[in-house]
Computed example of a mutant assay.
Amino acid sequence: MSPLSTSQVPKLRRGFRLQWEPAQSCHVLLYPEGMIKLNDSAGEILKQVNGAHSVAEIIDTLSSRFPDVPGIDEDILAFMEVANAQFWIELH
């Protein structure tokens, strides 16, 4: 797998859908075989994944929304790498 570039544009893989699940009180990632319960950070990141915004744009958006979180850019990059490795997202 090639390294992640901040110029890449992530989108959810076909068959995956992000939604708020009131019963779980969190965002979940739904796919045909099941559901992934997401923590707050993962939910905020995936809410930005729409196939139009680059990783750099997502980092900028979340950095401005959460200015007091140190190392947010590294956290977002690490999550994107995991999400890509788990086949939750595609990078273009």
Rank of each mutant, 00 (worst) to 15 (best):
T61D: 12
S54P: 03
Q19R: 15
S63K: 11
P67S: 04
I72P: 00
A56L: 06
A23M: 13
L18R: 10
Y31M: 11
W88R: 08
F87D: 15
L38Y: 01
R65Y: 06
R17V: 12
E90I: 07
V49K: 00
P67C: 06
F16R: 11
L12N: 01
F87V: 14
S2Y: 09
I89T: 04
H92L: 13
Q48V: 08
S54R: 07
Y31S: 08
K47Q: 15
Q86N: 15
D60C: 11
D68G: 08
I58Y: 00
Q8R: 12
H27Q: 14
Q24M: 13
E44C: 09
L30I: 12
Q19G: 12
E74W: 04
I36F: 07
L30M: 14
E33A: 14
M80N: 03
T6H: 08
E74A: 07
I72F: 05
I45M: 06
Q86T: 15
S7L: 13
M1V: 14
A23E: 14
E21C: 10
E74I: 02
V82Q: 14
R14P: 09
E44K: 14
K37N: 13
V55I: 15
I45Q: 01
Q24I: 15
L77I: 06
L12T: 01
S7K: 09
Q24D: 10
K11C: 07
F66S: 04
F16S: 02
K47E: 06
P22C: 04
F79W: 02
Q24W: 08
Q19V: 13
P3L: 13
S2T: 13
E74M: 07
K11E: 04
I59L: 05
V9G: 01
S54Q: 04
I36K: 11
E57R: 02
N50Y: 08
D68A: 13
V49N: 04
M1G: 14
V9C: 09
P10L: 02
I36Y: 05
R17P: 09
Q86L: 15
L30R: 12
D75C: 10
V55P: 04
G71P: 09
Q48N: 09
L77S: 02
I72W: 02
Q86F: 15
I72N: 06
P67M: 02
S54K: 06
A85V: 13
A83E: 01
L18F: 05
G15D: 06
D40C: 08
Q48G: 10
A83G: 03
M80F: 07
E33F: 09
